[in-house]
């Protein structure tokens, strides 16, 4: 099964939000009531019913306002922190195509994935007691189609295709515009890549983690204490058995007793 990548070429985004609408439409997600907050940011954040959105940021470039637009959604990690911590098998699945898919049927609403995700992606619904997020349109890509957002994008900012091809394209485009590829951590790869332009500080993009990686606490939890719990219990039980075999039980040494208990209390 071929692995895929969604490529987001920030330099081509006009902030039209066609991707936002297409995602809602394909996934049958209801619109949200929002209020004006003094920015073009709308809706304000990802939610249980908003799996992708355009992040708007305004920065000052030599006295002029510059708009930053960034398509934000699940990054479909290669070794996803969310899957690593999820207690309920099947609730979050890493697929051979690279998509990380949630299944509401199995989600128990523990929210561990929300805390572990380095990109702060999954969103919780208290009413349903479960999470939801972008699935990379798994139902479309397994049918030979591109994700709904990519299909809707009019500028070519979003692209989708086989992993090698997309990486090649990202490198070429980054070179062309003098920008760079994000994320760029060989130890924490993702099936979504950005080409970010030159001349803009990465920190200017709100909600963009400058150093995405598997949280250290997750590694300690899952790679250390999880196996240690079994090793500890088994090891100590084994040592106790050895003690019993070698030293034997701690028998009471018989000493003359003073007789019965007087009052029992």
């Amino acid at each position: 099964m071929a692995e895929y990548i969604k490529l987001i070429d920030i330099t081509k985004c006009t902030g039209c939000r066609a991707c936002q609408v297409a995602c809602k439409q394909w996934n049958g997600l209801p619109a949200e009531n929002t209020t004006f907050t003094g920015s073009y940011q709308n809706p304000p954040d990802l939610s249980y019913n908003t799996w992708t959105l355009i992040r708007f940021d305004e920065i000052d470039v030599e006295g002029n306002i510059k708009w930053l637009m960034r398509h934000d959604a699940c990054m479909h990690c290669e070794d996803p922190a969310c899957v690593k911590v999820c207690p309920s098998p099947g609730a979050l699945v890493k697929t051979p195509e690279g998509a990380v898919v949630h299944n509401p049927k199995y989600c128990i609403g523990c929210k561990a994935c929300m805390i572990a995700c380095p990109f702060n992606v999954p969103r919780y619904s208290p009413e349903k007691d479960e999470i939801a997020k972008c699935t990379l349109c798994y139902d479309r890509i397994t049918d030979g189609k591109r994700p709904a957002c990519v299909t809707a994008c009019p500028t070519g900012c979003l692209d989708f295709g086989p992993k090698d091809k997309m990486i090649k394209k990202a490198r070429a485009r980054a070179e062309e515009v003098g920008g760079y590829i994000y994320p760029n951590n060989p130890k924490y790869e993702t099936h979504v890549l950005y080409v970010l332009p030159k001349g803009v500080d990465m920190k200017a993009y709100s909600h963009l983690n400058p150093d995405p990686k598997m949280p250290a606490t997750v590694l300690w939890w899952k790679n250390l204490f999880k196996p240690f719990t079994l090793l500890g219990m088994g090891g100590v039980a084994g040592l106790a058995a050895l003690h019993y075999l070698i030293k034997g039980p701690h028998e009471v040494e018989e000493k003359p007793s003073k007789g019965g208990d007087a009052d029992g209390e």
Binding site: V85, T217, W221, T229, G232, M233, H243, Y244, P249, V252
Partner: peptide, 28 residues
Amino acid sequence: YMLHAMSVFVLASFLMVHIYLGTIGNPG
């Protein structure tokens, strides 16, 4: 989450000592 898992590791391991010494390790 991490400290929860760590505490379980510590207590569950120590529990085995407790069970052994409270039962066959110390008759009576």
